[in-house]
Design a protein around this nucleic acid. Structure first.
Length: 432
DNA sequence: ACAATGGTCC
DNA sequence: ACTCGGACCATTGTA
């Protein structure tokens, strides 16, 4: 059995000769610098939003209790379940169970929407209180004297990804009504811009590369929208006739592939029957034989050698793959599929960070940029994204350099496209 | 102090 | 008889 790097090179990839441990060693000082620089936050707007959402959520709490006809702790899943299912006798037919009773998780409550107006209010209450208690209240308390937040990165993950903690800046909201508003509070210093550069579909591109799947390599090389292409394959419809719903479903299937897809898992996230999910998977693998083969080979290797590895040699042991417990062995099988994908994508980003840090140092030594506003600085990274702060006048050229650098850090068998955006705040960098 | 539950991100 | 991968954090409720 050939290892993953040898296979990739046979497929035409140009991979720098560096091991994952070496990458992490070079990365350490880069991460330290990013942590020390930090990212500026508009504390006032966070506090303003916090107060606003607290008022809204308090109103909702009162309405919920009124509907329930009782004062109880809405934040307590046990008390909430008692109200919904014992007192109000809402239907529990299809609902998932927890150890103590019926689940009140969002995906379960979603099934009860329309059944009673209390459900929507609970979901909205949860959304608002989450934002307030996890982001809006804590973050302003931990900014430094320059209103900057300093995260702490870690490298001790099962796949080689980075972690971010105290605070975690890798799960700052982006969706919903208030996600963008929160991201608008992550701002550039005076006379500076934020530049965000993120790899487009990096994990799927890695799948294409590691598997050599012809249809997928062709899709990425031609530059079509990958989810629409998948939808066209699944529904056997020309790509121009794909509906939004079809594309959304195909997107979920594509993510499923990265995670080590199973009919049950896919049916859960799509909220469809297991049989339908199985049919989609069947169709997917009928078109993407190379990916099917990749999955099988990863499982075979894990069983034989006890581990799987990434393009740069990071290894993850998977002893449970030979377990008699099917739950455990199948879980290990999905890890065997996912770890090389997620891990390789992480390594690509790490290499990009190292190269970017080098380039920034060179840029800052060309005294022009240097003196003004402290020069160009990497201030955050979020799995497939790098955010830089740069003087306004340098923003355009820095953006170009970032795109160029990141796209060329490795040569996969498909293009590694990077999207860049410039703005006064994090949200703005994602627009246009 | 710790597990369970739930939720945010990529 | 039911898990789609990887993280961190808040709250509740039990120990």
């Amino acid at each position: 059995m050939k290892n993953i790097l040898a296979r990739a090179e046979k497929l035409g990839c140009k991979i720098p000769r560096i091991k994952s441990e070496e990458i992490d060693k070079k990365l350490a000082p880069v991460l330290r610098l990013i942590e020390d620089v930090g990212i500026k936050v508009d504390v006032k707007s966070l506090k303003r939003l916090s107060e606003k959402l607290k008022v809204k959520s308090e109103k909702l709490r009162k309405e919920i209790q009124k509907n329930a006809g009782e004062e109880f702790n809405v934040a307590s899943p046990t008390q909430l379940a008692k109200i919904l299912f014992t007192k109000m006798k809402l239907p529990t037919g299809e609902l998932k169970r927890t150890k103590s009773g019926f689940s009140t998780g969002a995906s379960e409550l979603e099934k009860l929407r329309g059944g009673n107006p209390i459900i929507g209010k609970i979901l909205e209450y949860r959304e608002l209180s989450k934002l307030v208690s996890t982001y809006l209240e804590p973050l302003p308390k931990i900014v430094d004297e320059n209103f900057r937040l300093h995260t702490h990165f870690g490298t001790d993950t099962r796949t080689g990804r980075l972690t971010s903690a105290n605070p975690n800046l890798q799960n700052i909201p982006i969706k919903g009504d208030f996600g963008p508003e929160i991201r608008r509070a992550f701002i550039a210093e005076k006379n500076c811009k934020l530049i965000s550069a993120d790899y487009s579909q990096i994990e799927l591109r890695v799948v294409a590369c590691l598997s050599g799947d012809k249809a997928m390599v062709e899709a990425f090389s031609s530059g079509v929208d990958i989810h629409s292409r998948t939808a066209s394959e699944l529904f056997r419809v020309p790509i121009e006739k794909i509906t939004n719903d079809q594309r959304r479903l195909a997107k979920t299937v594509n993510f499923g592939v990265i995670y080590g897809i199973s009919p049950y898992g896919l049916s859960q996230t799509l909220g469809i029957a297991r049989e339908s999910a199985a049919e989609y998977i069947f169709r997917y693998f009928a078109v993407h034989g190379g990916i099917k083969k990749y999955c099988e080979e990863q499982i075979t290797q894990a069983k034989k050698l006890g581990y799987v590895e990434t393009l740069f040699g990071f290894q993850r042991k998977l002893p449970e793959i030979n377990s008699a417990d099917r739950i455990k062995s199948e879980s290990a099988q999905r890890m065997a599929i996912n770890t090389p994908v997620q891990g390789t994508a992480a390594e690509i980003l790490k290499l990009a960070l190292i190269r970017l840090a080098d380039q920034m140092q060179v840029l800052n030594q060309k005294s022009k940029i240097k003196s003004q506003n402290g020069g160009v600085k990497i201030i955050l990274t979020v799995h497939d994204e790098v955010i830089v702060e740069a003087p306004v006048k340098d923003a355009e050229s820095v953006a170009k350099i970032m795109k160029e650098t990141m796209e060329n850090v490795v040569k996969l068998s498909v293009p590694t496209e990077v999207e860049v955006g410039i703005g006064d705040n994090w949200d703005e960098t994602k627009k246009v």
